[in-house]
Amino acid sequence: MNINRLLISILALFLIAIVLMSGCLESGEEIKEVVIYVAHDQDYSEPILKEFEGETGIKVKTLYDTETTKTVGLVNKLIAEKNRPQADVFWNNELTRTIVLKNEGILEPYCSPNALEVPDIYKDPDCYWTGFGARTRVIIYNTDLVDKEDAPTSILDLKNPKWKGKICIANPLFGTTASHVASLFAYWGDDKAIRYFNDLKENDIKIVESNGMVRDLVVSGEFYMGLTDTDDANDALVENKPIAMVFPDQGDEEMGTLVFPNSVMLINNGPNPDNGKKLIDYLLSKKVEKTLSYSKAMQIPLKPGVEHPENVPDVDKLKSIPVTQEEIYNKLEVSQKFVQELFIR
């Protein structure tokens, strides 16, 4: 066959393929839409976003995060897109990275009417972000290997030589573990925190890949106990695996545990700001908090009077470490550098 004809026909096929595929491209002008980046698990967030779509007719385009320990891809992406934002809303599943975004100037303040009932400690005073549906740090232990009497009730129990080499935590550089470490540095001060982690290192604490992995390893018995988040623990509890979940340090004299809500925020100069505000209002509704609490993520509603199942604690009965988000954020770098030096070598 003539080479030219062959080349031309390949080119033609190629162009036709592109044209066919571009039929899938949204043009964006005729359809009402909103773009949201979601750090919360897809399985829980997708249904809520689909309901929003159904109720308002606004098409929701989502981008999900994956291994929050590994990539924090969405936060990096938001920062990289600063000069030409592609997203309208960011649904984060914790607060520390939210503060990072605020300080980078990525956010736009929006005082949603649905934010009024959220307690002050769980929202930004200048309306840059609002919290909803919280999780906490918990200790989990394997009930076949640890008796109830010996069970840990405080994170200080993790120093006990009885459990040497039997405790695991997720990589303290990322995600909620990093926030937890920073909160301890903020609450205790650097010296006491450094001593605590050195003690943990003496006690042969192991770093594993993620909170989910902590759960799996405690379930299988390869470790006796570990620190993880409520939703990861609950994944095992609903399957009746042999573990128990403890909210640590809840006693009268004790410091409480780290409570971290989802946070939702408006991105500065996003493509569809009005639809973004509507989506934020929707996500801050009591209905959504109720849905999140009944989900496997068992998220704790922050607003008063939201119906929730038995296993989800009341937010006012839960003792949380008395530090502000800003204080945690300020300790982030120094705490990360320390744990990196100590544990990741």
Binding site: Y64, S210, D232
Partner: peptide, 8 residues
Amino acid sequence: YTLMHYGA
């Protein structure tokens, strides 16, 4: 990888 995160 998204699914791996929360054990499905």
